[in-house]
Design a protein around this nucleic acid. Sequence first.
DNA 1: TCCCCCCTTACGGTTACCCGTAAGGGCTTT
DNA 2: AAAGCCCTTACGGGTAACCGTAAGGGGGGA
Lengths: 221, 221
Amino acid sequence: MFKKVLIAEDMEDINKGVHSLLTELGVAHIRQVQYCDDAYLKIKRGVLDNEPFELLITDLSFKADHRSQKYPSGEALVEKLKSEFPTLKVIVYSVEDRLQPVRNLFNKHGIDAYVCKSRAGLKNLTTAIDKVFSGATFLSDEVSNAFNSTNELEIDDYDISLLDNLSKGLSQEEISALYKENHITPASLSSIEKRLNKLRIQFNAHNAIHLVAIVKDLGLI
Amino acid sequence: MFKKVLIAEDMEDINKGVHSLLTELGVAHIRQVQYCDDAYLKIKRGVLDNEPFELLITDLSFKADHRSQKYPSGEALVEKLKSEFPTLKVIVYSVEDRLQPVRNLFNKHGIDAYVCKSRAGLKNLTTAIDKVFSGATFLSDEVSNAFNSTNELEIDDYDISLLDNLSKGLSQEEISALYKENHITPASLSSIEKRLNKLRIQFNAHNAIHLVAIVKDLGLI
DNA sequence: TCCCCCCTTACGGTTACCCGTAAGGGCTTT
DNA sequence: AAAGCCCTTACGGGTAACCGTAAGGGGGGA
């Protein structure tokens, strides 16, 4: 079993619950932090001291308070850690059950497991820890169809960028100008129109407003 | 102090944390449920047995699972309970920190306190319980400007309906037709345009898409 | 009662969006 | 090298959205 594990979670009770779970599993060294920045510092220090953490269990959303944070969310923290310390195992433990954010965590940041906080949360977390320790990955049932599905996987980064800019109030012409400026292709108004039309069909949206509302609900933007 | 309290919360660890807090406060009868429907049944039974619960502490979001629920959310539960048992005190304990949902809970459903789950969550919950016991209300700091502010309180139900229909993909003309059908006034296309224009200005939105994106983020719809 | 204000509605002009068609260019296939 | 395909871009017509102006209508106050 893991010997040295870090828990990052701002809510005290949950933090405590995970801690006692790890104790039961026989983890010797457990550290807890309530801020992402502290998590990064502890991980870094562990490496410098040649006593690196083997596993990070982290939440996604951390409530902001008076302390300004370099890493405001679990996602930002994971992105940084996985790029700097690729051997560190990471389990994300969060209430988020939309598929796209989960997909991103695996595909872009390379996390090892995703566990949904729910009634069976701690039980799933146990399974996840076992799996990750044995080198496998784990995904909660709630979000298991994030990959195996015939889902909206033909949505690429360009589409996301398009939808994101739309949701920020840019007109299609402004987006076209922006893309031309940044050498993003396709940049023509016509191509943007075509792509948005494709997205409208895919998501069964009546118009652009509807489309943005739908993808916001899905968590794509 | 309260003698009989019900906790509705689907996550086990939090449920446990709140339970131990109540024990420390000297509450004799504490019951816990993980489903809204169970909460309703327990409250109802308490009344029928002439041993009513005095206080309900409930979460807002309950993860759906195999059990189909009549009351899918804390909000639905509270709405029902407060209309059927007005003397029951209700404290909502949730991570939700958007102002509009909190406002709705107070204004439409008449809850007695709102506590944000956060680092200081349990401490605030203690304060809330004291306040509510003495007949007062309580509001977490995180959402304290839900009322005292010079906020977007000039947004009425008509505006919300308008934005909601927009986000569902209806064109302004379709909304006009819908309102005429349902005798909602103003229903003319011109008035709808004017109202949306006012909303765009209020929210600093560049266009309708931007507006819908903003109010979705705020939790108004 | 009359006047005034505000809300609702109507209308016209400009812009942005939606949609089909078609031309140009790069890549692969034969 | 020619043909074919796909992606990008351009253009034009129709529609919805945006914006200003102005007329109608009801309620409150003088």
